[in-house]
């Protein structure tokens, strides 16, 4: 129990409760269950892709191309759906994931084999993938009436009042919770991020780990691509521009160390949820749209400062405890 209070995730959770309390005091409708379901729907895609980003950041890398990969896989399946409406929806989903895996594995190969630093690699592929979206669609949109009914409503289909979008994101969370915490490869991912050289000394294959995290992130992003264009019923060349920064922000707010080695899925999901709540709350309390973006930025920085301050305090407690023990 004492440990719980020391966790960054817990700090963030308390911070979220504060915001909810503060906003609902001004706007009681914020507390309606429907509003929370909306927030969950809005942050489901962000949570999923942020988990992919988390794995890469934990190894000490970063993926700037997720926005573009998302757009490219989304555009591909939207066009496929437009020209071959007969393809069943589960095939569409598999194809979207496959495209994402391919794009991610290209990143992975460039980083692990060609040894190009992740930030450079993905800065390059960010442009390449985005450029391919333009090439594919020729600058036009795939809009709602060009998509099949099954394609469009898939993310909204609900069971027990909860949408398939949320179910899928929960599935991703559980799968990767198991992967990162209970499997050998998961442990090795944290090892590589914590200390590359020491990991090499104990026989961990760095190249393999780098390839795996980029490819898996790509796979999640591919799935997110389909969900995104289906949910907004539009695939366009500007889809998800700047989204990579949101995924990185969700990670950082969730306590992921930007230098690698530490970070949890729960933290990242809370981080994404936090961003959704802030966005939603600002709209609810009628903050001018012109101000919203700047205020969002302020709140993000504020959250991170609180997190770091709490961390420092805990470290000092730890040191004092240590000196006492010795």
């Amino acid at each position: 129990m004492k440990d719980l209070f020391r966790k960054r995730e817990f700090n963030l959770f308390i911070f979220i409760l504060f915001i909810i309390f503060g906003v609902s005091w001004r706007t009681p409708s914020f507390l309606y269950i429907n509003n929370f379901v909306d927030i969950l729907n809005d942050t489901a895609i962000l949570s999923m892709v942020a988990i992919g980003q988390l794995m890469i950041i934990v190894t000490g890398g970063i993926d700037l191309s997720v926005g573009s990969s998302l757009a490219l896989s989304g555009m591909s399946v939207a066009l496929l759906n437009q020209y071959h409406p007969g393809i069943p929806i589960f095939m569409i989903i598999l194809i979207s994931i496959a495209i994402g895996l391919l794009l991610g594995s290209i990143n992975g190969l460039l980083v692990s084999r060609a040894k190009i630093p992740p930030i450079i690699t993905t800065l390059g592929t960010m442009s390449i993938y985005r450029g391919l979206v333009f090439v594919l669609c020729g600058g036009t949109w795939v809009s709602a009436h060009e998509m099949t009914e099954a394609f469009r409503v898939f993310p909204r289909r609900s069971f027990l009042g909860i949408s398939s979008l949320i179910y899928l994101s929960i599935l991703i969370v559980i799968l990767f919770l198991i992967f990162l915490n209970l499997t050998r490869t998961g442990r090795e991912i944290y090892g590589v991020g914590g200390n590359k050289i020491a990991s090499q000394y104990v026989g961990i294959n760095l190249k393999k780990i780098q390839y795996i995290v980029f490819t898996l992130c790509g796979g999640i992003t591919g799935l997110a691509g389909f969900l995104w264009v289906a949910r907004y019923a539009a695939a366009q060349s500007e889809t998800a521009i700047g989204f990579e920064l949101q995924t990185i922000a969700a990670c950082v707010i969730g306590g992921v160390s930007i230098t690698g080695g530490s970070g949890t899925i729960i933290g990242v999901v809370l981080g994404a949820f936090f961003m959704g709540i802030v966005y939603n709350a600002l709209t609810m309390i009628n903050v001018s749209p012109f101000w919203q973006m700047a205020i969002q930025g302020f709140i993000i920085i504020f959250a991170i400062i609180i997190n770091t301050v709490m961390d420092k305090r805990n470290q000092q407690l730890m040191l004092r405890k240590r000196s006492f023990n010795e």
Binding site: R187, G191, N195, Y201, I204
Partner: peptide, 29 residues
């Protein structure tokens, strides 16, 4: 510090890292 320990991991995770194939069952820890 550089070549030996992984500081962000706990003692258990550090000690079992080189023998991870002995301590885990198939792919699971």
């Amino acid at each position: 510090q550089i070549q030996g320990a992984i500081l962000a991991m706990n003692i258990r995770e550090n000690i079992t890292l080189p023998i991870i194939d002995r301590t885990s069952r198939h792919i699971f820890l």
